[in-house]
Structures are given as C-alpha cells and as structure tokens.
Simulated scan of single mutants.
Amino acid sequence: MTPSKAVTAVRGFRARTEPDKVRLQLAKDLIADLKRFDEQLAANKQKMTELLDEHGTGLRDIDGVGPVLAARILGCTGRASRFPTSAAYANYTGTAPIQIASADASRYRLSRYDDRQLNSAIYTIAMIQIRMPGSDGRQYYDKKIAEGKTAAYARRALKRHLAAHLWRLMLADETRAARPLSNELSTAS
C-alpha cells in the first residue's frame, strides 16, 4: 500500500469513540512517516546515482544491480586492487567455499568470517539474476543444475562466480580512473 492509497483509505474513516480517534491519529502519523521515508529514499537513490556517475563504475550494468546495491558493494569493498586475486576477494565476501573434512566425508561450506553486508549484496544479485530468465546468472545457474548439482550448490556457485565478476569489473574501473591521472602527470613533466 502506498501512502496516497493509505490517505484515501483513512479519509473515509470516521472516529466515533475516543480510542477510534487515537487510532486514526496514529494511522495519520504513520502515513506521514511513510511519505517522509519515501522522499528520503528517493533523495538517497538520486544522490547515490550522482556519486556513482562521478565514480564511473560499470557495476550498474550487471543485471540486478541498481544504484543502492552498487553503492553498497563499493562502500564495503573499498579499493578492489587491495585484493591480489579474485579468490582473495571471494574469500573476503564469503563466497569462497571452505573444505570441511571429517573422517571419510569431505564437503564444502561457505565462510562465516566475511563481510556479511557484502555477502548479502551478492546474494541479492544472485537471487535477482536467478529470477530473470534471460540473465547470464540464470544461464550459469541452469548450467549447474543440468550438471546434476543441487539448487543450493548452484546458488553458491553463482555467488562465487558473481564475486569474481564484480572484482574484475571494479579493478577495471580503478584502472580506467587512474589512467587519466597518470596521463596528466606525464604531460606535466
């Protein structure tokens, strides 16, 4: 329900008792809060879009990544070049599998020593891509299922695949941003 629909619904309500008046006032206060929060979210999204445009990132080109997720990923990651490999970045995001061996059984699980907000952002991207029939993520997920893997395994594999893709993209963005600076330094000499 949107705030405008809520206003319409409340407008038709007439309070007859004192508790009804209190409920009506509380409902009006909640609707005002919702309007304010919607305005704040729109303003935050606009500000993030402007900052991402300044940053020059290609993260928003990935299916399922909007300005909010892109800003969250960049904020949690920092400089992508601080990770020597995509595996190191996957370990940081918690998408790299860890082997758990006990007696004759050996299995893999995801790390719990990671940046949980970054892991959550990658999970969100993976779930959005799985739900999008034409996305690269859905094709990767379907390929894993066709190989006989479970849905949970395919989802984890997609998250690891996305982490590597995000790292490469952020690294390319850093390189592209540093290139004009190095050109300016060489022409100033």
Score class of each variant (00 low, 15 high):
189 S>V: 11
58 G>A: 12
124 T>Q: 11
165 H>P: 00
104 D>T: 15
40 Q>K: 15
138 R>L: 01
59 L>I: 11
93 T>H: 03
8 T>P: 00
36 R>K: 13
163 A>R: 06
103 A>D: 14
136 D>G: 08
52 L>A: 08
130 I>Y: 02
189 S>R: 13
55 H>V: 08
69 L>Y: 00
39 E>L: 12
139 Q>F: 08
123 Y>I: 03
136 D>I: 04
159 K>V: 02
98 I>N: 07
51 L>D: 12
2 T>W: 05
126 A>V: 00
180 P>C: 08
112 R>G: 12
43 A>E: 13
60 R>S: 10
83 F>Y: 00
61 D>V: 04
114 D>I: 06
184 E>T: 12
24 L>P: 05
90 A>W: 02
171 L>G: 09
15 A>T: 11
132 M>L: 04
86 S>R: 15
82 R>P: 01
157 A>S: 15
111 S>A: 12
148 G>Y: 02
34 L>D: 05
30 L>N: 11
81 S>T: 10
12 G>L: 08
125 I>F: 02
38 D>F: 11
71 A>K: 01
9 A>P: 03
112 R>D: 06
116 R>W: 09
136 D>W: 02
113 Y>P: 00
95 T>K: 04
94 G>N: 05
123 Y>V: 04
69 L>I: 07
108 Y>W: 14
68 V>A: 14
167 W>T: 09
106 S>C: 12
166 L>D: 01
148 G>H: 02
47 K>P: 00
111 S>D: 11
157 A>I: 02
189 S>E: 10
30 L>A: 14
150 T>Y: 04
104 D>M: 13
52 L>S: 10
27 A>N: 04
25 Q>W: 10
146 A>W: 09
104 D>G: 15
17 T>I: 08
183 N>F: 08
116 R>A: 12
124 T>G: 06
40 Q>Y: 09
64 G>H: 03
64 G>A: 05
15 A>Q: 09
109 R>T: 13
169 L>G: 05
39 E>P: 07
31 I>Q: 10
123 Y>W: 11
182 S>H: 10
38 D>M: 09
31 I>F: 07
184 E>R: 13
12 G>C: 02
7 V>K: 15
118 L>E: 06
166 L>I: 15
131 R>K: 11
83 F>N: 01
149 K>H: 14
154 A>D: 03
37 F>K: 11
94 G>Y: 03
131 R>M: 04
28 K>W: 06
106 S>Q: 14
89 Y>V: 03
3 P>F: 04
181 L>P: 04
34 L>Q: 09
176 R>G: 04
70 A>G: 01
13 F>K: 07
35 K>Q: 12
120 S>P: 02
97 P>M: 01
132 M>I: 01
22 V>N: 06
110 L>F: 14
2 T>F: 06
77 T>G: 03
81 S>Y: 02
122 I>A: 01
180 P>R: 07
78 G>H: 05
102 S>G: 06
139 Q>W: 06
120 S>I: 06
1 M>V: 11
4 S>G: 03
179 R>D: 07
117 Q>M: 09
101 A>F: 04
24 L>D: 09
155 R>Q: 13
